[in-house]
Design a protein around this nucleic acid. Structure first.
Lengths: 150, 150
DNA sequence: GTAATCTCTCTAGTGACTAGAGCTTCAAGA
DNA sequence: TCTTGAAGCTCTAGTCACTAGAGAGATTAC
């Protein structure tokens, strides 16, 4: 019925130090302790950690996950903010894909422009990086507040 | 002929503290100093910083950029490693796109499953996050050494 | 009882910056 | 020449989401 932190880690696929980190960040509440001061978890914690893991897999920030958990703990509240958070995450992912596609085509062009068997002075990769004008597309940097997608 | 760090920042679009940071990381060599100990740059530094900025825009890590610069400084060497680095970056970008697309479809499904006007207890967003089995696709986390693409 | 494995807390490191404190230098106008 | 305000200097610490390691104590299987 009660698991150690190692058991919880094994069941959820979240590493032990990460579980302690989540606790320190307030995503998991402080669990019961054994007489020897070791953490003991039950099913509620197992589910909550599963929730967190799943949300992390989908790229949500810990801050966003905190907000979602807060909502989960108050089932009578309106779920407007949950939908807003999910939609925001979706928008961020789509934007990231858009940018990455531009990078991909530019990188492909650059990488394929060099066979790799010449001298550095003639390398198209190095020349392309030195001269932005050789670029076909616009591949500006992401300046938005990064929604971390590892 | 000689610019201050602020001029260099304005010309390249790289922020002043970032330029100092690049110097501390060895990507830019220590420049000349004015009698009052302020940095003074010439055209060589302008070009190098442009190179770095362009490579960063394309998602290369500072470590990779260091290697590319090293190669640039030895034009007689073979450019094999430059091509390898560029190809590696391209592979990383493609992998990232692949993963993000899986996330996108999953997130779209989740976000669209909830109108946002109900109570949290009935929220499909929260339910989906709590139960991975509601997911259609596999959207595992990125465990690879992250090639940072902001 | 003992040995092996877990678990504890704490600190520090990652990458690529960014922010701020407290000071000095520079450039332009009076 | 003097003044003033912007720009520059170094240094430290903070960001995010962990990860690694030290050195100690707890638990468990035999």
């Amino acid at each position: 019925m009660f698991f150690s932190i190692g058991d919880l880690a094994a069941r959820t696929g979240v590493k032990v130090p990460t579980i302690r980190y989540y606790e320190s960040r307030g995503l998991l509440s402080a669990p019961l302790r054994s007489s020897g001061n070791q953490r003991r978890y039950g099913h509620a914690e197992l589910e909550r950690l599963g929730f967190i893991r799943h949300a992390r897999d989908l790229g949500f920030s810990l801050e966003a996950i905190s907000a979602l958990i807060e909502l989960q703990d108050h089932p009578d509240r309106a779920c407007t903010s949950a939908t807003r958070i999910a939609q925001g995450q979706l928008d961020a992912v789509r934007e990231k894909i858009r940018r990455l596609r531009a990078l991909e085509s530019e990188l492909a062009r650059i990488a394929e422009g060099c066979t790799g068997d010449g001298a550095a002075r003639d390398c198209y990769v190095l020349a392309s990086l030195a001269d932005h004008d050789l670029c076909v597309q616009d591949h500006a940097r992401d300046t938005s507040p990064s929604t971390q997608l590892t």
